[in-house]
């Protein structure tokens, strides 16, 4: 139990997906302009990360490894994630339309979010057990949402700030991310 808690904290905060591992930057810079949309994106991504963590783990252990097909990992994983995202979208649309309206526009974007595929590949390389993979995915998703929300809050304020024209938008967002990464390094004990 203690190890699982440590794994969760390490995935969420110490080795934060966005700020330390550099995964999932397309939505980080694209979506993190408002707190509301960032929240939706964070929830949707966490959900897909956990689901794809589960499915890719099962596929890897019951199909790829027994048949010696590990070299197909990249192709199988990305197709699984793309199918899964499509499937989740259909299920949500039919059964929970309110949630679909809130998350709908983010779901297609998540297929090409490298945090999702990165998580699946990392779980295989670290040879996590099933439970560990789920906890790792959950931690990664929570950490991703946390960084996204913090960033959105800062960027909402930055919009009103006076600064050189060239730094507006992406430039200042990246420098802010750098300062946040420095703060997050504190958790690792630097």
């Amino acid at each position: 139990m203690k190890e699982l808690l440590l794994l969760f904290l390490s995935a969420a905060i110490i080795n934060n997906f966005l700020l330390t591992r550099f995964l999932g930057h397309c939505p980080f810079l694209g979506v993190s302009k408002e707190v509301g949309t960032s929240f939706g994106m964070g929830i949707a991504t966490t959900f897909v990360m956990v689901m794809s963590g589960i499915v890719t783990w099962l596929l890897n252990h019951y199909v790829l490894v027994p048949y010696g097909l590990e070299y197909l990992q990249t192709i199988v994983f990305i197709l699984t994630i793309a199918t899964l995202v499509q499937f989740v979208e259909m299920v949500l649309k039919k059964h929970i339309p309110a949630l679909h309206r809130a998350l709908g526009i983010y779901l297609p974007l998540i297929t090409t979010n490298c945090a999702v595929l990165g998580l699946a590949v990392m779980a295989v390389r670290e040879s996590y057990t099933f439970i560990e993979t789920v906890v790792f995915a959950l931690g990664g998703g929570v950490g991703f949402s946390l960084a996204l929300l913090l960033m959105a809050g800062i960027r909402e304020d930055l919009r009103e700030t006076d600064m050189p024209e060239a730094f507006r938008g992406a430039g200042v967002a990246l420098i802010t991310a750098g300062i946040m990464a420095m703060a997050f390094m504190g958790f690792a004990g630097f």
């Binding site: 991310a177 300062i179 420095m182």
Partner: peptide, 13 residues
């Protein structure tokens, strides 16, 4: 990590 973000930020600017 922080150095990567900050230098890329300055390059983009």
């Amino acid at each position: 990590a922080p150095g990567a973000f900050i230098i890329l930020g300055f390059l983009v600017a």
